[in-house]
């Protein structure tokens, strides 16, 4: 009977479909707060930042890595401070603690590079956090693919 078949198919496929939707939603949670929400006026390209670092004796910004420790431990921008993954409560807390005593006019450069730019879970929350703390001179390093490809592999300064 077509009706029975339809009902059987629905009963068989519905749990799989619901599971698939749940998985997709769960995965999209990681993509929800996108780096694309950061205004373009705040973004700096790796080549420009590297040039600035080469030119000046002291870095023009305090550089904060707001990604994961497993990445920072391997390589990071020379002089960068580990400030924790801003997608996680502990990470945000470390970021707040790191900058809490700094003047709100302090020039800061945020970067992560754990994932492709549009999928980075950390950079937008870090930006939002510093905005909410009224830091007025925050810039963000726009890393298109990842830190390895767009910074380290280009021979830019790492430690």
């Amino acid at each position: 009977m077509p009706t029975q078949n339809t009902r059987r198919n629905f009963l068989l496929h519905a749990p799989v479909a619901l599971g698939a939707i749940a998985l997709a939603l769960d995965t999209s949670r990681l993509l929800a707060e996108s780096a694309t929400t950061i205004p373009s006026s705040a973004l700096l390209e790796p080549g420009f930042v590297n040039a600035q670092l080469q030119r000046s004796h002291a870095a023009p910004w305090k550089i904060l890595q707001v990604g994961f420790h497993s990445m920072f431990d391997q390589k990071h921008i020379r002089g960068a401070i580990y400030a924790g993954p801003a997608s996680q409560p502990d990470g945000l807390a470390l970021l707040r603690q790191t900058v809490s005593s700094w003047p709100r006019t302090q020039a800061i450069l945020l970067y992560c590079g754990c994932c492709p730019w549009t999928h980075c879970p950390n950079i937008a929350p870090a930006w939002d956090q510093l905005q909410s703390m009224h830091f007025s001179a925050v810039k963000v390093l726009r890393i298109e693919n990842n830190f390895g490809a767009d910074w380290a592999a280009k021979g830019y300064p790492v430690a």
């Binding site: 998985l23 497993s70 391997q74 590079g113 754990c114 994932c115 492709p116 830190f147 390895g148 490809a149």
Partner: peptide, 26 residues
């Protein structure tokens, strides 16, 4: 568990990452 991964999974560490040339992005 969520993805029903059917193969072994281990944790990395800086040494293992460096053995494989550095894993500076995923």
């Amino acid at each position: 568990h969520k993805l029903s991964i059917n193969y072994p999974v281990v944790m990395s560490d800086p040494r293992l990452s460096l053995l494989y040339g550095g894993i500076l992005g995923l």
